[in-house]
């Protein structure tokens, strides 16, 4: 008997086989590591898990991480909004070049992103002697961690907003202009409401990356325990000292952050899919 499935899909056994293969790949590649984080963290029991989270050094790492993200995310959000407005609402010479500059950090290793700041502000860097004279610390201190984080995470908000605003066009903004609205008013009551979900996801992703950044921060922080160790760096220190359970306990915080980010992303897609993808 010939199969009766539609011409644009495969026969049922092939379909099931492919689904099983995809589920296997995703399970092995993605799900297993996620489960492993929690399994390793709880390997020696809840007590040790909670004790590791209560440790003072863990707390100061969390605080530093929050501070670094709290400074770099707003900056990058501001940049993302500004860059997205610039390249989607105007056409100008050098626009394509600007767009590729925004993508540049994707092709730069986080380690190099840290290195450049060391070369500028480190003890042997260009501004090193001047900074030392004025007793300003950038490298091996919070400012260094923030600028390194900014470098690595700055495209995220812009990358989320640019395609969104490009696809929405400028009709609504132009309508607002003919109705006499000024720049700030247009942005606040016309543009912002229609990009809020994309903006939210961009900020969230930027935040997840900022809190989780390792390579760049590792280069500029100097690994001073209780002072310049962010959460990912603290995890590294614990791991290298063979305190595996403690390392994984701290890792669960970041893994949960990742899960929350993904959860909100799915939610946002679900919500905005209903309001903006409707056929007119």
């Amino acid at each position: 008997m010939s199969s009766t499935h539609h011409v644009t899909t495969e026969s049922k056994p092939v379909r099931l086989l492919l689904i099983a293969a995809a589920a296997f790949i995703l399970g092995l590649f993605l799900l297993l590591p996620l489960v492993a984080v929690f399994a390793e963290a709880l390997r020696r029991g809840w007590e040790l898990f909670l004790a590791s989270l209560k440790e003072e050094e863990a707390w100061s790492a969390v605080k530093l991480t929050l501070m670094a993200a709290g400074l770099s995310v707003p900056l990058n959000t501001l940049f993302g909004l500004s860059a997205a407005w610039l390249v989607t609402k105007f056409r100008f010479r050098g626009r394509a070049f600007l767009l590729s500059l925004i993508d540049l950090p994707f092709a730069v290793s986080p380690v190099i992103a840290g290195l450049v700041w060391v070369l500028l502000f480190g003890a042997h860097g260009w501004f090193g002697p001047w900074l030392a004279e004025h007793d300003i610390r950038i490298i091996f201190a919070l400012p260094g961690i923030v600028i390194a984080t900014v470098f690595v995470t700055f495209p995220f908000v812009a990358r989320e907003l640019i395609p969104l605003m490009e696809s929405q066009g400028s009709d609504q903004e132009e309508a607002a202009v003919t109705l006499g609205a000024g720049g700030w008013r247009i942005f606040r009551s016309v543009t912002l409401p229609s990009i809020k979900w994309g903006l939210m996801y961009g900020v969230l992703l930027c935040n997840a990356r900022a809190m989780g950044e390792f390579g760049a921060v590792s280069v500029v922080s100097g690994h001073i325990r209780g002072e310049t160790n962010t959460l990912p760096l603290h995890i590294e220190v614990l791991y290298n000292e063979y305190q595996f359970s403690a390392a994984f306990a701290c890792a669960t915080i970041l893994a949960l952050l990742a899960l929350v980010t993904l959860g909100i992303k799915s939610l946002v897609e679900h919500l905005s899919g209903h309001s903006s993808n409707g056929r007119h």
Binding site: A22, A23, L26, L30, L31, P33, L34, A36, V37, E40, P110, L205, A208, M211, G212, E213, F214, G215, P232, L233, I235, E236, Y239, F244, A247, F248, A251, L254, A255, L257, A258, L259, T261, L262, G263, K265, S266
Partner: peptide, 22 residues
């Protein structure tokens, strides 16, 4: 599963590193 695809984007690399090693 679709939501999970982004996990490597969102999971900090250090966490991925120690977990894969384990």
């Amino acid at each position: 599963l679709d939501g999970m695809v982004d996990l490597p984007f969102a999971l900090p690399t250090a966490v991925a590193g120690i977990t894969l090693t384990a």
